[in-house]
Simulated assay, not measured.
Amino acid sequence: MQSTIKKTIQKVSFYLLGFALSGCSSANNEMAGGNLQAINHTMHGINWMSVDGYRADGGGGSSCCIIMPVKWRPGLKAQIEWEVDPEPFGPTPPLGTDEFRAFMVKHKANYQRHNTTVDIPEWPGTERCGLKVHFLVCNQIKVTSSCWAFNSEHYPIKEPSQMKEPAVCPK
Protein backbone atom coordinates (compact mmCIF):
# COMPACT_ATOMS: atom_id res chain seq x y z
CA MET A 1 0.00 0.00 0.00
CA GLN A 2 2.79 2.45 0.93
CA SER A 3 4.55 1.68 -2.37
CA THR A 4 1.40 2.57 -4.33
CA ILE A 5 0.94 5.79 -2.38
CA LYS A 6 4.62 6.70 -2.91
CA LYS A 7 4.34 6.11 -6.70
CA THR A 8 1.16 8.21 -6.86
CA ILE A 9 2.86 11.04 -4.96
CA GLN A 10 5.85 10.85 -7.33
CA LYS A 11 3.61 11.04 -10.42
CA VAL A 12 1.65 13.98 -9.02
CA SER A 13 4.93 15.70 -8.13
CA PHE A 14 6.20 15.30 -11.71
CA TYR A 15 2.97 16.76 -13.12
CA LEU A 16 3.06 19.66 -10.69
CA LEU A 17 6.72 20.29 -11.51
CA GLY A 18 5.84 20.38 -15.21
CA PHE A 19 2.99 22.81 -14.60
CA ALA A 20 5.17 24.97 -12.35
CA LEU A 21 7.96 25.08 -14.91
CA SER A 22 5.59 25.95 -17.72
CA GLY A 23 3.91 28.66 -15.67
CA CYS A 24 7.14 30.34 -14.59
CA SER A 25 9.04 30.38 -17.86
CA SER A 26 9.14 32.55 -20.91
CA ALA A 27 7.31 31.46 -24.06
CA ASN A 28 10.55 30.23 -25.68
CA ASN A 29 11.52 28.11 -22.67
CA GLU A 30 8.09 26.77 -21.71
CA MET A 31 8.30 23.21 -20.40
CA ALA A 32 5.72 20.45 -19.98
CA GLY A 33 5.58 16.87 -18.78
CA GLY A 34 5.24 13.91 -21.10
CA ASN A 35 5.45 10.12 -21.05
CA LEU A 36 8.49 8.01 -21.87
CA GLN A 37 8.07 4.86 -23.93
CA ALA A 38 10.60 2.16 -24.81
CA ILE A 39 10.21 0.32 -28.12
CA ASN A 40 12.54 -2.65 -28.38
CA HIS A 41 13.45 -3.76 -31.91
CA THR A 42 15.96 -6.39 -30.73
CA MET A 43 15.85 -9.97 -29.48
CA HIS A 44 17.36 -8.85 -26.15
CA GLY A 45 15.51 -7.63 -23.08
CA ILE A 46 15.65 -3.98 -22.06
CA ASN A 47 15.41 -4.04 -18.26
CA TRP A 48 15.17 -0.27 -17.79
CA MET A 49 16.09 3.01 -19.42
CA SER A 50 16.80 6.52 -18.25
CA VAL A 51 16.39 9.69 -20.32
CA ASP A 52 18.07 12.78 -18.87
CA GLY A 53 17.82 11.15 -15.45
CA TYR A 54 14.12 10.27 -15.77
CA ARG A 55 14.01 6.50 -15.30
CA ALA A 56 11.41 4.33 -17.02
CA ASP A 57 10.50 0.72 -17.66
CA GLY A 58 12.18 -0.84 -20.68
CA GLY A 59 9.29 -3.21 -21.31
CA GLY A 60 7.44 -1.20 -23.92
CA GLY A 61 4.70 0.57 -21.97
CA SER A 62 4.59 4.27 -21.27
CA SER A 63 6.05 5.55 -18.01
CA CYS A 64 5.55 8.90 -16.37
CA CYS A 65 7.34 11.36 -16.86
CA ILE A 66 9.90 13.48 -18.63
CA ILE A 67 10.00 17.27 -18.70
CA MET A 68 10.51 18.60 -22.22
CA PRO A 69 10.24 21.96 -23.96
CA VAL A 70 6.82 22.71 -25.41
CA LYS A 71 8.50 23.96 -28.60
CA TRP A 72 11.40 22.21 -30.27
CA ARG A 73 14.66 24.13 -30.57
CA PRO A 74 17.90 23.36 -32.41
CA GLY A 75 20.48 21.38 -30.46
CA LEU A 76 17.91 19.56 -28.32
CA LYS A 77 19.50 16.32 -27.10
CA ALA A 78 18.67 13.42 -24.82
CA GLN A 79 21.13 11.49 -22.65
CA ILE A 80 19.96 7.84 -22.75
CA GLU A 81 21.13 5.10 -20.38
CA TRP A 82 19.80 1.53 -20.45
CA GLU A 83 20.37 -2.00 -19.25
CA VAL A 84 20.23 -5.02 -21.58
CA ASP A 85 19.50 -8.63 -20.69
CA PRO A 86 21.18 -10.48 -23.59
CA GLU A 87 19.29 -13.74 -22.90
CA PRO A 88 15.85 -12.87 -21.48
CA PHE A 89 14.02 -15.99 -22.68
CA GLY A 90 16.29 -18.85 -21.57
CA PRO A 91 15.13 -21.66 -19.27
CA THR A 92 15.17 -20.91 -15.57
CA PRO A 93 14.95 -23.08 -12.45
CA PRO A 94 11.73 -22.93 -10.39
CA LEU A 95 11.11 -19.55 -8.71
CA GLY A 96 11.90 -19.24 -5.03
CA THR A 97 14.47 -22.05 -4.96
CA ASP A 98 18.14 -21.83 -4.04
CA GLU A 99 18.89 -23.05 -7.56
CA PHE A 100 16.90 -20.11 -8.98
CA ARG A 101 18.72 -17.58 -6.76
CA ALA A 102 22.12 -18.96 -7.81
CA PHE A 103 21.00 -18.90 -11.46
CA MET A 104 19.95 -15.23 -11.20
CA VAL A 105 23.30 -14.19 -9.71
CA LYS A 106 25.04 -15.66 -12.78
CA HIS A 107 22.36 -14.38 -15.17
CA LYS A 108 22.53 -10.78 -13.88
CA ALA A 109 26.32 -10.82 -14.25
CA ASN A 110 25.69 -10.85 -18.03
CA TYR A 111 23.55 -7.70 -18.00
CA GLN A 112 25.09 -4.88 -20.02
CA ARG A 113 24.75 -1.16 -19.41
CA HIS A 114 25.03 1.41 -22.17
CA ASN A 115 24.66 5.15 -22.61
CA THR A 116 24.62 7.59 -25.48
CA THR A 117 23.52 11.10 -26.34
CA VAL A 118 21.13 11.52 -29.28
CA ASP A 119 19.56 14.45 -31.07
CA ILE A 120 15.83 14.89 -30.54
CA PRO A 121 14.27 15.46 -33.96
CA GLU A 122 12.06 18.46 -34.61
CA TRP A 123 8.35 18.20 -33.93
CA PRO A 124 5.75 20.49 -35.49
CA GLY A 125 4.39 23.33 -33.34
CA THR A 126 3.32 22.01 -29.96
CA GLU A 127 2.42 18.49 -31.17
CA ARG A 128 4.97 16.84 -28.89
CA CYS A 129 3.70 13.50 -27.58
CA GLY A 130 6.23 12.53 -24.96
CA LEU A 131 9.41 10.75 -26.02
CA LYS A 132 9.63 7.31 -27.59
CA VAL A 133 13.03 5.62 -27.35
CA HIS A 134 13.74 2.92 -29.95
CA PHE A 135 16.34 0.28 -29.08
CA LEU A 136 17.98 -1.07 -32.23
CA VAL A 137 20.62 -3.72 -32.89
CA CYS A 138 24.27 -2.89 -32.18
CA ASN A 139 23.16 -0.76 -29.20
CA GLN A 140 21.89 1.99 -31.46
CA ILE A 141 19.14 4.38 -30.32
CA LYS A 142 16.61 6.51 -32.18
CA VAL A 143 14.10 8.82 -30.51
CA THR A 144 10.95 10.54 -31.64
CA SER A 145 8.21 12.65 -30.13
CA SER A 146 5.79 11.74 -32.92
CA CYS A 147 2.11 11.47 -32.03
CA TRP A 148 1.60 8.75 -34.65
CA ALA A 149 1.39 5.13 -33.50
CA PHE A 150 4.38 2.85 -34.05
CA ASN A 151 4.01 0.99 -37.38
CA SER A 152 1.73 3.72 -38.77
CA GLU A 153 2.72 4.74 -42.30
CA HIS A 154 3.36 8.25 -40.92
CA TYR A 155 5.55 7.11 -38.01
CA PRO A 156 9.12 8.37 -38.60
CA ILE A 157 11.04 5.29 -37.38
CA LYS A 158 10.68 2.38 -39.82
CA GLU A 159 13.00 -0.35 -38.45
CA PRO A 160 11.18 -3.67 -37.94
CA SER A 161 10.65 -5.47 -34.64
CA GLN A 162 12.58 -8.58 -33.59
CA MET A 163 15.80 -7.61 -35.40
CA LYS A 164 18.70 -10.04 -34.97
CA GLU A 165 22.17 -8.75 -34.16
CA PRO A 166 24.49 -8.83 -37.19
CA ALA A 167 27.71 -10.86 -36.91
CA VAL A 168 29.65 -7.57 -36.93
CA CYS A 169 28.25 -4.19 -35.89
CA PRO A 170 29.23 -1.09 -37.88
CA LYS A 171 31.52 1.35 -36.11
Score class of each variant (00 low, 15 high):
1 M>Q: 15
7 K>W: 12
8 T>Y: 05
8 T>K: 04
8 T>F: 09
9 I>Q: 13
11 K>L: 13
11 K>I: 15
15 Y>A: 12
15 Y>Q: 11
19 F>L: 15
20 A>R: 10
20 A>P: 03
20 A>L: 14
20 A>H: 07
21 L>A: 12
23 G>Y: 06
23 G>E: 06
23 G>Q: 09
24 C>G: 15
25 S>M: 13
29 N>K: 15
31 M>K: 15
31 M>G: 09
32 A>S: 14
33 G>T: 14
34 G>K: 09
37 Q>R: 15
37 Q>L: 12
40 N>R: 12
40 N>S: 06
40 N>T: 06
42 T>M: 09
48 W>Q: 09
48 W>V: 05
49 M>Q: 05
49 M>H: 11
50 S>K: 04
52 D>S: 11
52 D>Y: 08
52 D>F: 08
53 G>Q: 03
53 G>Y: 02
56 A>K: 01
57 D>R: 04
58 G>F: 14
58 G>L: 03
59 G>M: 05
61 G>M: 14
62 S>H: 08
67 I>Q: 09
68 M>L: 14
69 P>W: 00
74 P>W: 00
77 K>W: 00
77 K>V: 02
77 K>C: 00
78 A>Q: 02
79 Q>I: 05
84 V>I: 15
88 P>L: 01
89 F>A: 04
91 P>H: 06
92 T>C: 06
92 T>M: 13
93 P>T: 07
97 T>P: 02
98 D>F: 13
100 F>Y: 07
100 F>A: 00
101 R>Y: 15
101 R>H: 15
102 A>S: 13
104 M>G: 01
106 K>T: 12
109 A>V: 06
109 A>W: 06
111 Y>F: 06
112 Q>M: 01
114 H>F: 09
114 H>L: 00
116 T>W: 00
116 T>K: 01
118 V>N: 01
119 D>G: 04
119 D>P: 02
123 W>G: 11
125 G>Q: 12
127 E>T: 10
127 E>W: 13
129 C>P: 03
129 C>R: 09
133 V>G: 08
134 H>M: 07
135 F>W: 07
136 L>W: 00
138 C>H: 01
138 C>W: 01
138 C>M: 09
140 Q>N: 03
144 T>A: 10
144 T>E: 08
144 T>I: 09
147 C>D: 11
147 C>S: 13
148 W>D: 12
150 F>S: 12
152 S>I: 05
154 H>G: 06
155 Y>L: 11
159 E>D: 15
162 Q>L: 07
168 V>R: 04
169 C>E: 13
170 P>Q: 04
